[in-house]
């Protein structure tokens, strides 16, 4: 077997053209999901009964189904449903099937990422510990002030590694957008490959693209983490308490 290097180089540059779409899918999804997920996490922690149950149900459902299945479901269900809503219920003459399919991609990824991030935020908020909230209350701060000034700044820092994880997971799963004929990195490469059956070359290309993208994200998060952890200056925090403990006792 021989690799078609000429095709490979060509396709590599073609696939690069898909990067904006891939990044757009990732970024916009994150920006929409994060605030929703945050309030869901808060709702669960503050023990709002009905809301808490609904959120738990939602998270279990999303986590319990493969992304591919969610895409298949939504992509076949949503357009028809929307069409029915627009035409029959609202009586508008708008053609739903003309909508950019990237919209459905956003919906699927937002649904998914919100569920993932709500758990990330919940665990992060819990790491701060109730004691600091109590202190804030005893010195006369309101719950809201305590969250904004004390709890959230710390929670964000401890959530960073998991947010990084979720972002990378999201970026990789945007490759499934090709199923909804969104022209992202994967879709472009697949189309090119299908033309002359040069699948291996195309896959190697996008493999490289994804590795670079994901590495870049990790780097960005590392920088943010270094900046945000300024208050954990002691030697103890390098690698966490566990690290220090092991060093002491082993």
């Amino acid at each position: 077997m021989e690799l078609n290097t000429k095709f490979m180089i060509e396709t590599f540059f073609d696939a690069l053209a898909g990067i904006p779409v891939t990044l757009k899918l990732t970024l916009i999804t994150l920006l929409v999901s994060a605030p929703i997920a945050f309030f869901m996490a808060l709702g669960k922690i503050e023990k709002r009964k009905i809301a808490g149950k609904l959120i738990s149900g939602y998270v279990s459902f999303i986590r319990g189904t493969p992304v591919v299945l969610q895409i298949l479901f939504l992509y076949s269900l949503l357009p028809t449903l929307l069409n029915y809503l627009v035409k029959d219920v609202l009586g508008l003459s708008f053609n739903v099937f003309q909508l950019d399919t990237i919209l459905y991609a956003y919906i699927v990824f937002v649904l998914n990422t919100t569920a993932v991030l709500s758990e990330v935020f919940r665990s992060a908020l819990l790491t701060v510990g109730h004691g600091q909230m109590e202190t804030a209350l005893t010195i006369g701060m309101t719950k809201r002030q305590a969250y904004i000034r004390i709890i959230i700044p710390q929670a964000v820092v401890s959530a960073l590694p998991n947010i990084c994880n979720a972002t990378i997971g999201l970026l990789k799963s945007t490759s499934l957008a090709f199923m909804m004929s969104v022209q992202d990195v994967t879709a472009i490469a697949k189309v090119k490959a299908a033309y002359g059956y040069n699948y291996i070359e195309a896959y190697l290309d996008i493999c490289f693209v994804y590795i670079v993208l994901c590495s870049a994200i990790q780097l960005v998060f590392k920088l943010i983490e270094r900046y945000a952890c300024a208050y954990k200056k002691s030697s103890r925090t390098k690698g966490g308490a566990l690290y220090a403990r092991n060093k002491e006792y082993i």
Binding site: G131, T135, I150, Q154, V157
Partner: peptide, 9 residues
């Protein structure tokens, strides 16, 4: 408090 509960940030 027993465990100080200082604001870590």
């Amino acid at each position: 408090f027993q465990n100080y509960n200082l604001f870590h940030n």
